[in-house]
Design a protein around this nucleic acid. Sequence first.
DNA 1: CGCGCGATTGATTCGGCTCAATAACTGTGG
DNA 2: CCACAGTTATTGAGCCGAATCAATCGCGCG
Lengths: 239, 239
Amino acid sequence: MKAKDQTQAPTCASCFSREHSVFRNLESGQLEQMTYAKSCSTFKKGQALFTEGQHPTGVFCIHKGKLKLFKLGSSGKEQIIRFAKEGDMIGYRSLLSGELFSATAEAMEEAQICFIPKDTLFQMLQVNPKLSFEMMKLACHELGEASKVITNLAQKPVRERLAEILLILKHTFGEDKEGYIDVSLTREEISNMTGTATESAIRLLSEFKADELILLDGKRIKILNAKKLAKIGMVEEEV
Amino acid sequence: MKAKDQTQAPTCASCFSREHSVFRNLESGQLEQMTYAKSCSTFKKGQALFTEGQHPTGVFCIHKGKLKLFKLGSSGKEQIIRFAKEGDMIGYRSLLSGELFSATAEAMEEAQICFIPKDTLFQMLQVNPKLSFEMMKLACHELGEASKVITNLAQKPVRERLAEILLILKHTFGEDKEGYIDVSLTREEISNMTGTATESAIRLLSEFKADELILLDGKRIKILNAKKLAKIGMVEEEV
DNA sequence: CGCGCGATTGATTCGGCTCAATAACTGTGG
DNA sequence: CCACAGTTATTGAGCCGAATCAATCGCGCG
């Protein structure tokens, strides 16, 4: 399941993506410990880091690349729970709660991932209350986000949800030089986020395009009128 | 917002509902500290402990009673995020993530609630890594539950969701001597959990009753055929 | 006893899903 | 470099689940 090449494995101390992660405030001793314990590997597009139902043995840090986390619904359709990119940590939820993985993590593009074994992380948590607090904060924040998603799914019609999702995507992944959202998603993946049939997502995207709210170029999406999208999505802030 | 009577305020050391809470393993010193710092009050049915958007100043421990936590959707409809009962802690998510309350907590029946100020809790977290871990675990567990809810809302039809909700209610609140689920909910509240119109929830409940899966007596609900409900709800376990 | 909210049931509408057919695109091997 | 196979995207038609609207009923309670 894990790839093998440790070739360009960097030290954690010099890791750029760490700067934006929960590990940003580690002292050098712990950084060394982590560098020593971690293993780094490459995942190809579509390859899974772990699968729903498996037993967690550590956490994954994303050094490069983008991942999607999804659960399979009873009909087999993927429900995308969240994305993860450079500097994000994956798999901590199940590890910390002592449960099996509740979702599958899959690389959306070639990705370089570091793996930190459970023992190492737990040791660090024990001696470093700040790290514990940081991770608790992260979990609590995500919990708040989840309750928003729940309310939206339960109450907003598809059109509103999709409008909001587009703004969230822009916010999560940013834009490239040309102003397109910096992520490549299939229409199906977009629908798996929104909680809708793929055809519905396509139809609405076409509508938004016709209304000049967005611009479509294959999988590339550019937001032209965030204000109006926010109004459609019933969000005050432009997410 | 808070009621005043400290009349029957018990000590935390003797608090029965603490036995099942994250505070179950506190040592006597911290228990004293908590007893000293906490304030206990009574909330009437329908009274809010806190409201979405407010600034958290501490956490609430439920000594007695049942609460619902809900968010308001853009149309003003309540979305029930979770319930809380004896021994549960409320308001920790926002406090720990340093955000505003993301939901409103309201007493569903007369409730006795203890309030633990932010400073006290944070001090205890600092000196007690086990408590931190316990709370992190709690948050991570709930996060996993949330992702289940998200997948269900996005993918399951109303009929399946309602069947599952009934099983969850039974599991959460247990049954009284007569086998009825030990909580009193209006049809609207049930629909606000399920993410559906009240009329739809009513219709489906009537169906389930006609199919002899449940028994209805006013607000009282008794599960007659959990196995079949689980099948309808597409859940392997009987939740 | 009557007021008023919650529950129920019926009729109707409509959003969104499914099914189906095509078109466009991606990669792959000759 | 092109043709083919296998996805992925698009569009249309029809249907169905669930929301809405409307009316009545039943009670809990002052």
